[in-house]
Design a protein around this nucleic acid. Structure first.
Length: 430
RNA sequence: GCGGGUGUCGCCAAGUGGUUAAGGCAGCGGCUUGUGGUGCCGCCAUCCGGGGGUUCGAAUCCCCUCAUCCGCCCCA
């Protein structure tokens, strides 16, 4: 209809919707701060090579989903498809890691050129956490708990934590060989997609949604079997830690994360309310990434959470439970006062009064229509203001203002227009 | 990139070949030009996502296109 429209897969966030966003972001800020994570903001655009090296050339994200273009200096630029590579780049660039381990979190838009569907957009938003320089299995546990508790604090239900270990780089290599060998004997039984992946990214075949392939995989060698004793005991320690914290999880030995940099712990938190894109949060350990991007060998764990998906789940939660925690996040703020005014002198006085009250922390809606009093009252009522303040020529002439409660019963009262603190007391009284 | 569904006012929604395109919500105006919430009255799509075509005649049929939704791939 309109010729000017937002690009496909890019959505506007309007004030009412943003109420929810802001609540979630505020909750995140507090939650991460408590665990000692500091916020980091990196550019939305990076040199293309960062992602090719960080995420892996063979991955779909790099292979077909990046927004890449050349700038006027003929540099290849890419709109970031995820946050981890950028965070690591920034940490290396500023020598953060020479000061010891870094606990960082970020929130912001990511870009992936994909076909939009439920819970998926081309510009979407992630909140993520990266703990660089953490090697203990306990850090895996802590980071997972950080995600789990954050979601719980928002009142999100119906979540499941799925856990797997990809083992060390060597374990993975060994398993890869074993799996490919096993699958090659059975190529004729594989679906088309899986066949293609056999040479590019065989581990991902485990994830296949193809029913026949899944059935076939029942008897395939498993990742767990090829774990070294060290990897095995590390995986046990992570599970033990989660159990200690009372965080329920389900082992899923098919869980393979899509990005190349993961090793050892891999996890996903899924929701039963999301349709096909059920993963709300995903992450794991990526001990090799920092080295790969030019730093010294440094272990790290982290995760990223899809904000749009989280908000989708929150919406369901607040529908199901209108008085629950999730619903409280979205209450629209009502003005404390609606300032009705009419007449030249009164309008000037109203401007001054509104500013004075706002500077005292009140939310004041100032009518600027000059319409009839009845009209202005109607608007005052409609916006849900608790009080109407009335300034007409009569009041202005006497340097007074009339205050009338709109929601509770009570009489109008007249106040000296400069009795700001007394008015504030009344307007804030409960 | 592939498959399927949908597209009528800001939102919900009737209409499926025949003169002026229901209705509801919201909005605006009035009854009520200094007092709101209820009520009543009025206004609010020459146009049916866009472009072509078929027809005496189309929102209704056909083609193309765009957008959107659901799924696949993949991921948060």
């Amino acid at each position: 209809m309109t010729h000017l429209q937002s690009l496909r897969g890019m959505v506007d966030l309007l004030p009412q919707v943003l109420l929810r966003w802001q609540a979630v972001e505020a909750a995140a800020r507090i939650h991460f701060q408590r665990s000692g994570f500091g916020e980091i903001r990196t550019p939305l655009m990076e040199p293309t090579d960062l992602f090719c090296r960080g995420i892996g050339e063979a991955t779909d994200v790099v292979g077909k989903e990046m927004y890449t273009f050349r700038d006027r200096g003929d540099r290849s630029c890419t709109l970031r498809p995820e946050g981890t590579a950028s965070v690591v780049r920034a940490a290396l660039q500023h020598g953060l890691l020479t000061q010891g381990p870094q606990k960082l979190w970020y929130a912001g838009p990511m870009f992936r050129y994909e076909r939009p569907q439920a819970g998926r957009q081309r510009q979407f938003h992630q909140i993520g956490v990266e703990w660089l320089g953490a090697s203990s299995p306990r850090s895996d546990v802590e980071v997972i708990a950080l995600a789990w508790d954050f979601l719980a604090s928002l009142g999100v239900g119906g979540l499941e934590l799925q856990l797997n270990s990809l083992g060390s780089v060597d374990d993975r290599k060994a398993f890869r060989t074993a799996l490919v060998g096993w699958l090659e004997q059975r190529v004729d039984q594989l679906d088309e997609d899986s066949c293609a992946r056999l040479s590019t990214n065989p581990l991902r075949i485990l994830d296949s949604k193809n029913k026949a392939t899944q059935l076939l995989l029942e008897s395939a060698p498993t990742l767990t079997e090829s774990l070294s004793p060290e990897s095995r005991s590390r995986f046990d320690a992570v599970q033990h830690g989660l159990t200690t914290l009372g965080i329920p999880f389900r082992l899923n030995h098919r869980l393979v994360r899509g990005l190349d940099y993961y090793c050892h712990t891999a996890f996903e938190i899924t929701s039963d309310q999301l349709g096909a894109q059920a993963t709300v949060c995903g992450g794991g350990r990526y001990d090799g990434l920092i080295c790969q991007l030019g730093g010294v060998e440094t272990p790290a764990v982290g995760w990223a959470l899809g904000l749009e998906r989280l908000l989708l789940v929150l919406e369901e939660a607040s529908k199901a439970e209108p008085t629950g925690r999730a619903s409280q996040l979205t209450r629209a703020p009502k003005p404390d006062a609606y300032l009705i005014n009419r007449g030249f002198q009164a309008e000037q006085a109203a401007l001054v009064l509104a500013r004075a009250l706002r500077s005292q922390g009140l939310t004041v809606e100032l009518d600027s229509s000059g319409a009839a009093f009845g009209k202005q009252f109607k608007r005052a009522d409609r916006c849900g203001a608790r009080f109407a303040l009335v300034l007409g020529d009569e009041e202005a002439g006497r340097d007074e203002v009339l205050i009338k409660p709109l929601l509770e019963k009570g009489d109008e009262s007249t106040w000296a227009i400069d009795a700001i603190s007394a008015m504030v007391d009344l307007l804030q009284s409960r």
